[in-house]
Amino acid sequence: MFRKSAAVTLILVMLSGCTAAKVPKQALDLSPEDISNKQLQTKFFETTDEKMILSASAGLLQDLGFNLDESCPDLGLVTCSKNRSAVVTGQVVGAVVVAILFGVAVPIDKEQKIRASLVTRPVGEKSDRVAVRLTIQRVVWNDRNMVSKAETVNDPQIYQEFFNKLAQSIFLEAHDI
């Protein structure tokens, strides 16, 4: 009896593996959170020179160790990425403790790919300002080569730091330093 029901369950699982999952409703719905993220990710610069802002941004991303993947200056886009270690001491210690106490190996984060995409856009009635918007995502793999995190980074501190550095970088670019 048990075997039969197990077989039936297995068949159901196999069949359902072929059917599609649906897009979550909130995925394409503009939420108040999206709007506050936009403010966080955007900074305006008083200039008409969009290309200068874009190349200063690309320079800064290189300073931060990103490799450029794609660019489209006509539309003000630069995308870049970097692969880095994702090992966190606390998690490793936790895994060791669990292994000692229970004899179970817990997967720990090993590697991450960080992707950043930066878009510039002239704004204002006379297009006399340039909006710069940065968005960052990361995917983390654990030591079993499985994805443990796939997320958008919305940490205000990261964006503030980036834009402070960008302001400096634009200043240097403008003064040819």
Partner: peptide, 9 residues
């Protein structure tokens, strides 16, 4: 971008 996408290309 508003919807939380990052632009790839």
């Amino acid at each position: 971008q508003d919807l939380g996408f990052i632009i790839d290309k």
